[in-house]
Design a protein around this nucleic acid. Structure first.
Lengths: 199, 199
DNA sequence: ATTCATACTGTAATTATATACAGTAATTTA
DNA sequence: TAAATTACTGTATATAATTACAGTATGAAT
């Protein structure tokens, strides 16, 4: 099976979320509306690409005739991340739980938040954030960044070749300003949802 | 919930099998063809009966817009609450989604939060809070209260025979202090979790 | 006794949907 | 460096699908 481009993965994730949220797959129009396409043919082309790569099946002449080729809805919860290990390394996986039933984006893993650096945007200590690892990181998005083996959740305020500004959403913390040429900086994903257990 | 006739159960089972085999619900025509109906209206009538008895939901104007009401997706999401209507009245139900995968308490419904009166405890506009309606309301818990038909989410700070204090977790709002003997006050439940979709 | 629910047939209109064809432009691959 | 892939806009059309209205017939409930 071929690999998907990041855009194709977004489309694929949207289809999955529609199926799990509404109970049926989207139409070309619904895909186009969600992504802002001006023509349903943009969605049609994406569906053909997904079919060609073996991720979906399309039944022709059938409304919403999209079916997933293989589905697996068991998503890992990442607790503390060991220095140097990849996010999804087995040693970091706390347990597995189903997908958030409401996110319009795909969820690759949940990350347990440590600390209060993001309380101003309602992300508290011990919350679980849902992370998509393939979405292109965008300004003002809440991102999961790894700086020299240290994993942190912050708002991305500025990104250029030699300067990246990560903002803590809490006045008691300073912005993190790094030069990606001088320190090791990787984006592990974008925050697309949140789960909190209140006891 | 009413009981189904044997014919209605056959229709319902066919819908379930279609969803699990094909990945999407059937059309009226597909139902009619399977059962040998000569008119799609026969299927339409059955669907209306199933809806009336609460076994399915139908999204009007939507092809294959049938969703099962009592699968795993059994927890209702409450949007705006119409004045005077019970929380779980059909008119208030936005959709149904599965239980939060991590909550330690039972979840009776999700309530969509309107406004920013609870931002200091990380509950934001448009968040979904998970509500347990049978837990005994306790001091310092986040409760869902109905005061004269007005549903509100606040922290319960004080509760006695003639005085109840509900605190907004936002300095721009004042506490709500009511005498339960003088106004109609009901506790609709306790907040036991939170889901947020970040797009 | 009569209304109501069940279980359909038959027709038809409106809208929802799939999907082809003709393009443009940027990026990737051979 | 040409060809293919990706990622769309724009237009158009046949057909898929929902769903209303008008009936018929039977049995169960008020």
């Amino acid at each position: 099976m071929n690999t998907l481009t990041s855009r194709q993965k977004e489309i694929f994730d949207f289809i999955k979320s529609k199926i799990s949220n509404e109970g049926y797959p989207p139409t070309r129009m619904e895909i186009s509306n969600f992504f802002g396409f001006k023509s349903p043919n943009a969605a049609e082309d994406h569906l053909k690409a997904l079919k060609k790569k073996g991720f979906i099946d399309i039944l022709s002449g059938t409304s919403r005739g999209i079916s997933l080729s293989n589905s697996d809805d068991s998503i890992p919860v990442i607790g503390l991340v060991s220095a140097g290990s990849p996010m999804l390394a087995e040693e970091n996986i706390e347990k597995k739980i189903p997908a958030l039933p409401i996110s319009s984006h795909g969820i690759d893993y949940y990350l347990r938040v440590k600390g209060d650096s993001m309380i101003d945007v309602g992300i508290f200590d011990n919350d679980l954030i849902a992370v998509n690892k393939d979405l292109k990181v965008k300004k003002n998005a809440i991102v999961i960044a790894r700086i020299d083996d240290d994993v942190t959740v912050k708002t991305l305020k500025e990104i250029s070749n030699n300067k990246v500004v990560l903002k803590a959403e809490n006045d008691n913390y300073n912005d993190i300003i790094v030069n990606p040429n001088k320190v090791s900086l990787n984006f592990e994903g974008t925050c697309v949802g949140l789960i909190r257990n209140i006891s």
